[in-house]
Amino acid sequence: MDTLKARTIKFYLIKSFQLVVITIGLGLLLFVEGLFFGIGEADQMIESINLGSTGLLIGIMLMPAMYAIYGPNLYDSLVLSMGARRIDIFWGNILKEVTFSVCSAIIICIFGAVIDLPNFTTLSLIVPSFGLIMSALCRLVAIKFKNVGKLAIVVVALISGFVGATVGYTFEQNTLVDVFSNMNVGLFVVLGIIGVVAYAIVERLIFGSIMKLSVN
């Protein structure tokens, strides 16, 4: 099916899979780093797995958001200049983010099964849904405040820094996995669903501006 719509969708799907690969890469990198620095220590393997899984989770939460903050100005603008329709760009972005979240959820489940941490799988709803809502918010900011893109970057950097610091702190005390694992499963499900609903609401807001999208 060689329609303009199909070509646009394909473009965003490929971008989505690229992000998945980068995120897995990030987790692996931290895992290897943990192995490298932990040589000789007794709990070397466990420490590395904790480090890697934390990296993976942070990647899932923030990677699509980082993309979303520069996407409208760079990639959306690029494909718009090559004849893509605004409506296809809108749905392409959603598809990209949802695909990323679904892939992330699957990866978390597989990872949980492999490292034999039953609690880990419960993260498969909340973490990707946090990523979803972050990316939608970032895209909204990027579209609405196109001309203050640099400011937007600063805001995202602050948020990322805050999340990073929090994670870093909890990592000192406990692992991120532990923190999440100790939470109530029911709360997880509720937070996950709230995330998805919030995502839909933000997307609706973005939809209102999508027809104003123009090439830089």
Partner: peptide, 17 residues
């Protein structure tokens, strides 16, 4: 209509980032 046109724009060496 869009499928029939190409407006090849001047590439910008810088973005807002």
């Amino acid at each position: 209509c869009l499928d029939r046109m190409c407006y090849s724009r001047e590439l910008s060496p810088v973005t807002i980032f």
